[in-house]
Amino acid sequence: MFHYDDPPEPTGAIDDDRLRLIFTCCHPALAMETRVALTLRMVGGLSMPEIARAFLVQETAMGQRITRAKSKIKAARIPYRVPAAEDLPGRVSGVLAVLFLIFNEGYLATGPDTDPVRHDLTAEAIRLTRLIRALLPDDGETAGLLALMLLTEARRTARVSPGGELVTLAEQDRGAWDPTLIAEGHRLVRERLAARVAPGRYQILAAINAVHTSARDVRDTDWSQVVALYDQLGRIDPSPIVTLNRAVAVAELDGPDVALAAVDRVAPRLADYHAFHATRADLLRRLGRSQESRAAYDKAIELAGNTAETAYLTRRRDQLG
């Protein structure tokens, strides 16, 4: 019988055991934030303080959340197994959501004393996604999420300067991108295109990243393809964040004034999102509206939780005339 209080095995853990554990930790009867914390603790082997720091909650609160979850697993008998084939598709999407959250927390780590990129989290998320892919090699969204993670991870070292400042996609040294990860990511995206099945959210996001990583120079980026992919994404997953990201590509195609109008339309729903203000600040700067740009940078700095991002935004603000 499996004991939930045992620490995770440091090495040589059997993949089948890990898979069972992932499905238990990501069970739909647990709250989403609990699934993330439990997966990191039980599968990823992170310590309670590490998890608490990653999600900006008190260690005691995180401890209680995990203890409560373990009690529920035991009391309600949440099974420790990979679901039956008929239930697998529904359960896998829940697991992918957890893995994506873990990856994102690693990629844009929050907290004033946190490294800007938590490679342990991104690497763990990729490793676990590979396990799911081995279980379900034909699942499009699993392949899509893996591709998305690989194409993002490939740019990891180029994304933060030696001084600890965020380097935007346009300014990154593309020669520093990891060609092996990019090749694998592109292979997965091509595989999904060849499957001729309507792509889900992760597959479209992976395709957008494939367009970016295919350009040797930012000026070679196929922006109309990026906009078309965001349009496709907006049809299956309409959200103000999709509109915001689409606007970044629109700025390159139609100019910053058109993009700003699109961004301002979603303002009421993204008022607390730092990337909204950062995007606005950049568009206003390009339009020569320095004063408004400065105010937007101030707001973005106030809301950003990532140290590299804060450093970048601060420099950009201070460069305004």
């Binding site: 069970h27 009867a29 949440i78």
Partner: peptide
């Protein structure tokens, strides 16, 4: 039921049958 997955599956069906929300809670 052997475990929560089985109970939740039945409850999913039961909720549809009686057209109401259900709460599933284990006995000790």
């Amino acid at each position: 039921a052997p475990d929560l997955d089985v109970a939740l599956k039945l409850a999913t069906e039961g909720s549809k049958a009686c057209n109401r929300k259900l709460e599933v809670r284990p006995f000790h």
